[in-house]
Design a protein around this nucleic acid. Sequence first.
DNA 1: TTGCTACTTTTGTGATCACAATCAACCACC
DNA 2: GGTGGTTGATTGTGATCACAAAAGTAGCAA
Lengths: 235, 235
Amino acid sequence: MDKKSPIEITLTERDDAVTITQWVYQTLRNAVMYGQILPGRALTIRELAGILDVSPMPVREALRQLAAENALEIQGNRRVMVPKMTAMKFNELCEARIAIESHASARALPYIDTVQLNHLRELDSLIDQAQEQGDHEQISILNQNFHRALYSANPHQVTLPLIESLWLQLGPFMRLATSKLEEHYLIDRHNEAMAAIEKKDAFALQLAITADIREGIAFAGTPELLQSFIEHSGQ
Amino acid sequence: MDKKSPIEITLTERDDAVTITQWVYQTLRNAVMYGQILPGRALTIRELAGILDVSPMPVREALRQLAAENALEIQGNRRVMVPKMTAMKFNELCEARIAIESHASARALPYIDTVQLNHLRELDSLIDQAQEQGDHEQISILNQNFHRALYSANPHQVTLPLIESLWLQLGPFMRLATSKLEEHYLIDRHNEAMAAIEKKDAFALQLAITADIREGIAFAGTPELLQSFIEHSGQ
DNA sequence: TTGCTACTTTTGTGATCACAATCAACCACC
DNA sequence: GGTGGTTGATTGTGATCACAAAAGTAGCAA
């Protein structure tokens, strides 16, 4: 069963209020996002079903859903795997993030009221705390929450699912990157974003978001890290 | 069985080389895109399976896949339906199209060689022909092909799936709109786009794409049409 | 007529099974 | 020893079944 590289998936408690398919979906999604599944590693339904201790059926549905979100790739031989990364693709994903997220931030700005502003402030201070403690795991999660909260202020939001798809595709490689830039992430662009929000300055907000994204992944764009992406992707 | 409004889905020949799930997926996707399924209409797996004359299993998978692409909406009571449209949401979708597609066009520009340029020219002339014949069905399809061909020139393309998701969400309402603006769609922005491509002028290309999208849906933004969207959506 | 309750039906979920396509190991043959 | 074909195991696909939750319906009471 473990002829190929073994898969270590962190299992969470299964809530009975949630369908098995949803639980499997979330579990696999996290495994992809946290880079627990090597890109290029072929996944089989029955193997995952065995690991997660469920029947193959929920796994099938979860895999198909993740494939539809571009988190997984269905090869012609109808095998499923985490897509391999290339330097160019990584760059395209980052630029796409910037284009869509800066747009989403500007579109959300008019809807931000004091309640949401306070929520953002709260997240911002939590990020500062995590930064002091050097908890990069937490920083990454809180940073996502910050962005999500910002875009979600728009009640007619339609781009968030697209953005989440991009996050999912970048996920495993972002983590690889952020673990190495610990000391580089100095400037807190969120403060700039907060200031722009308070001034209702859409352009400044877009600049802050763009800078935040670009700096968060800039060091992942160095040749040696990009090379390591490809090596990891090559299985 | 037909207590609710009946569903008329155009059935295509099923190719044996293709899995049933894929066929069901394409069939349902077209049905959504062409507005054959009324927004708000609750869909049941068994009903669709009966219409398509397949077992419930492929329908389940196809529905889940379409839901992951935001073509369908899974309600809390785990019922599935085509999402209802609102004026604000329609506007958000259009602006998202402009943001992403203009970005995608600029990103594709450097990769367009003479072969792809000729392909685009061919599509452009086909659109002109269809326009002379007043075949709006064909115009709509060819227009999509034109955009898709343009963005796909980028070999590291990552935004096309996101764009297709937006098209899918706008699909049924776009058709409602384009049927009414027959005489309005006069200026062929594709010629401008072609000129920008030949000059390798990214900014001009973005402007042309933006104008093409905005004009194609501008008349759908009139209050009365938006009202009709909501009425149709209200089932 | 209106509101609630109990019952019946329908529906989504998930497990199991059958089958054809695919993959992997193996062996014969050049 | 390397190569091509063959057999056995594995896999995805799709059908069928069982079950609990949800929706719909009928009946009764106010």
